[in-house]
Design a protein around this nucleic acid. Structure first.
Lengths: 203, 203
DNA sequence: TCAGACATGTAAGTCGTTACATGATTCA
DNA sequence: TGAATCATGTAACGACTTACATGTCTGA
């Protein structure tokens, strides 16, 4: 079995929610998980082939309605096993490469004004992101509370081609919301840092 | 001029603090900047060559004391110009790939216990990191307050081969400390998230 | 004397991204 | 009829990372 990387597990894990196509995976990640993950076609399709080759998934040539051929993939027992094993292992701690902090640190050679400009610019960007996250979180929160899943939520879950039952829907909403909370709290911390730094550097 | 990537600017920027060798750069990043950046030899040495080729730095074959040949690199006017231009541009927003959140999200298919295990494990790791960061921050804070730079601080700045004057030293300490504050606040936010998630999932 | 820090570099590999190529279907 | 979305794929490239190779100097 070939050396297995994170994308493999990401895709395998998405198949473990429900069988779907490469296109579905791309859209789901793009729309619902983009605050913590990304995948692109150039990676997805070869990975799906690889999963099939390794017996971790099977291709079910599902030709939904009059559409073009959709290749729907379903996780196998073996794939499920491998995925569950991976899930049980602690996540690797990410290699950190924060360009903003790099710029900030390296600006230390110059007058404070240069560093302040960097931080102010960062602050503006983070504020935009925060509002975006909060909007999404509000939509999801409302859906979970009321048990109704309007168009907006389905957009966030990209649920048009992969039918989910109510329980799955609620569960997926809940987990997307919790990951969004992570994003919100992280952004808030960054904004607090901006405040602190601006205070220190303007003293 | 070849297509220039982040590592080039990171290294160029470190040269803009003071002339130094590839080995110095590696150690400085490893010891003082590891909470937000990394570089490895396989990248540093070819990059330094590239900088010289592009006229952004010059090699000063400085043979310090009886040691093995040390190739010390000094940034050029042109390099400084290019670096300053880069510094003035907003940082690219990083492509996010958070393995922990991926695992957490994908664990949503299973009973809450599985998700809780992931979060608890994360919490423990983050606590260790937090203590580490706090220790370093305390050392740096003390140095800045008292104006004295004991061995410990010099370790954090890896200041044995690249002599700094007092002003540079204070400045560098201050900026490392401020980036550390970013790390601390980020980790605290993650720990707060763990708390929140554990509460939600055990209800 | 020998372990460990000092010091520089190369080659191959990995993983993911970008750009390209192709074509069907839907709806305004 | 033509733009947008649905849908699948490949090839080349880019940006590091890992493993390897080599040798010096210092201090216990």
């Amino acid at each position: 079995m070939s050396n297995i990387k994170k994308s493999h597990f990401a895709i395998l894990g998405l198949l473990s929610w429900q069988p779907q196509s490469g296109y579905d995976i791309k859209k789901l990640v793009e729309v619902g998980l983009s605050h913590f993950w990304n995948e692109n076609y150039g990676n997805i399709y070869p990975t799906l082939d690889g999963l099939v080759r390794d017996g971790l998934a099977v291709k079910e040539a599902g030709n939904t309605s009059g559409r073009r051929t959709r290749n729907v993939y379903r996780i196998t027992q073996q794939g499920q096993q491998l995925f569950d094993d991976w899930l049980a292992q602690p996540a690797d701690l990410p290699i950190v490469r924060n360009e903003l902090l790099l710029k900030f640190f390296l600006s230390g050679r110059l007058p404070n004004k240069a560093s302040l400009r960097i931080v102010q610019n960062y602050q503006v960007h983070q504020q935009v992101i925060l509002e975006d996250y909060r909007r999404s979180a509000a939509i999801l929160g409302r859906a979970i509370e009321t048990g109704t899943y309007p168009q907006e939520v389905m957009m966030l879950l990209n649920n048009d081609t992969r039918p989910l039952n109510t329980k799955q829907k609620a569960r997926q909403c809940k987990f997307v919301l919790l990951t969004l909370r992570h994003g919100i709290m992280a952004v808030e911390a960054r904004l607090a840092w901006c405040q602190e730094v601006m205070q220190v550097l303007t003293e």
